[in-house]
Design a protein around this nucleic acid. Structure first.
Length: 129
RNA sequence: CUUGCAGGAUAUCUUAUCGCGUCUCGCAUUUGCGGGAUGAGGAAAGUCCGGACACCAUAGCGCAGCAUAGCGGGUAACGCCCGUCGCCCAGACAGUCACUGUCAGGGUCGGACAAGUGCAACAGAAAGCAAGUACAGGUAAUGCUGUAGUGAAAUCAGGUAAACUCUAUGCGGUGAAACGCCAAGUAUAUCAACAUUUGAGGGUAGCGCGCCCGAGUUGAAGGGUUGGCGGAUAGAAUGUUGUGGCAACACAAGAUCAAGAUAAAUGAUAAGAGCCCUUUUGGGAUACAGAAUCCGGCUUAUUUCCUGCAUAAAAA
């Protein structure tokens, strides 16, 4: 699988975003929080991911941009962990809940542990049903 | 060498791998794949002024409100910029040194107090509504007159407008979430009130007038949408040369095209060069900060340099 992250893999619909935020299931691996939901094939072509960084915690746009880019980069480089292990399409929402500017390593570690949790949970549910 | 003042430049670079937005070419015609080009700032910030542009009526009149304030110029325009006069400030230097002179500079300074209202420390009888000390003169009598005394200023006015106010000039409102169009979709359903040229209601958002639109409007209860395209990046544009001007700037010639996103691209990793520290190995630092309709300013944040000037003389 290629390590791409184009426009159609981003969660952009206001409606879907709000829906995921309200109804999604969540995991936390500090400093990240993952909210996700399975979505029917007919609604979206690819699994989609969106990033949120609170404006209250980071007043400067430069800091927000940096965190968003770091998270997107970590997602891009590690998303194969999910899609090589689970079927289906998802909408992800990743929140940054830390208070300081993170390094790429901490974000990547948190991302991987989030994905581990997701995979175990989803696999268990599938085998149960 | 130090210090002060003013002005200007700059905001690390290269390569490799992975990746993103836009444009474009080719192949597929479906969502895509491949190649090429291009992709943050001096403040992109604060949103404080001025415009362009759009809509509101074609944006009119009066009142209210706001802004500006020597003189001259620049500009599309400005509360910005340039020049200049006065005043003030701060510093340096010199001398006959509590002062004076000269000089880099800087400024929340700059219409009117003989239109009215208000305010004014100390001193003083008194600084506009109520009075008056001493001496001299004068009177029927009296602060009636002069001088002294207080003070920057004394019945005569003066000071103060960063006091109200007056004068002159300018300003209609909203703000790209403006505005125009397309697609999808619902309900030409129900009830009530008012009205249809004798005008309901609306434009109208400081108030009033005037003007315009006008056959539907308002309320109750309920239903649907919240996608896309344009606006939107070739412009009061940039830099070069020449001419005019003390300057801001203007004109002419030829040259160049330089982000256009929308839950919002411009990034990550590695190596090297450069910078700083260290004898080397090596280590370290890299500010303020992210386009959101577009321009001209102002203000604030901030890295590292350079240049000029600072009575005269000498030196760097």
């Amino acid at each position: 699988m290629r390590l791409r992250f184009g426009k159609n893999e981003r969660l952009k619909s206001q409606k879907l975003l709000q829906f995921v935020f309200d109804n999604g299931r969540a995991f936390t691996a500090y400093p990240l929080k993952l909210i996700y939901l399975t979505v029917p094939d007919t609604d979206i072509a690819h699994s989609q991911m969106g990033v949120m960084v609170g404006k209250k915690k980071f007043k400067r746009a430069v800091a927000r941009n940096r965190i968003k880019r770091t998270i997107r980069e970590a997602y891009r480089l590690n998303k194969h962990l999910i899609f090589n292990n689970i079927e289906g399409k998802y909408a992800f929402l990743i929140l940054y809940i830390g208070n300081d500017l993170p390094t790429f390593e901490t974000v990547e570690k948190a991302m991987v542990s989030l994905f581990d949790k997701l995979i175990t949970v989803e696999k268990n549910e599938k085998t149960d049903s």
